[in-house]
């Protein structure tokens, strides 16, 4: 089942603009390897779910996947063949807003080549260009 909030303050939201780069969630924190977006965009709950399913089918019972994004934003749309006006459309689906640098998925418990292949499958489900990243150890 695609992800969606349990409780919200407002049913509908405005579209908004995506400005700047990710300043939080922009490094691999939980797993060993991750999938990072290099462009901004909206990731729908169904796309996140598709990524999760792709990894779980590929890894079977190996490794562990972490999903670092959550679809907090409702997207509304008007029914087909409807005249303009008469208020905002009904919420249709939920999206996660991502900025360049956001780590969307992380994997642990598998070697690097396997993680690369698993995350490549996820990347093909994403509407944004992605890159494979590994956890970096601080030197400071």
């Amino acid at each position: 089942m695609p992800m969606m909030p349990k409780r919200v303050k407002f049913r509908k939201s405005q579209r908004g603009k995506i400005k700047g780069n990710a300043t939080r969630g922009n490094y691999v924190a939980f797993g060993e390897y991750g999938l990072q977006t290099t462009k901004e965009g909206w990731i729908t709950a169904r796309q996140i779910e598709a990524g999760r399913v792709a990894v779980s089918h590929f890894l079977r019972r190996e490794g562990r996947l972490f999903i670092r994004i959550f679809p907090h934003k409702p997207v509304s749309s008007k029914p087909l063949e409807t005249r303009m006006g008469k208020g905002k459309g009904e919420p249709e689906f939920w999206v996660a807003v991502v900025k360049p640098g956001q780590v969307m998925f992380e994997i642990t418990g598998v070697d690097e080549p396997t993680a690369k292949r698993a995350l490549a499958r996820v990347a093909s489900k994403m509407p944004v260009p992605c890159r494979f990243v590994a956890r970096r150890h601080a030197v400071a």
Binding site: M4, K6, K9, P79, K86, G87, P91
Partner: peptide
């Protein structure tokens, strides 16, 4: 749909039909 914070259950009961009417009107 997710629960809307701050909207009381009684209101929901009253508003739900109104919402439905709106949606029908749009169609």
């Amino acid at each position: 749909e997710p629960e809307v914070i701050g909207r009381k259950k009684e209101e929901e009961g009253e508003e739900a039909p109104a919402d439905q009417k709106k949606a029908e009107a749009k169609k």
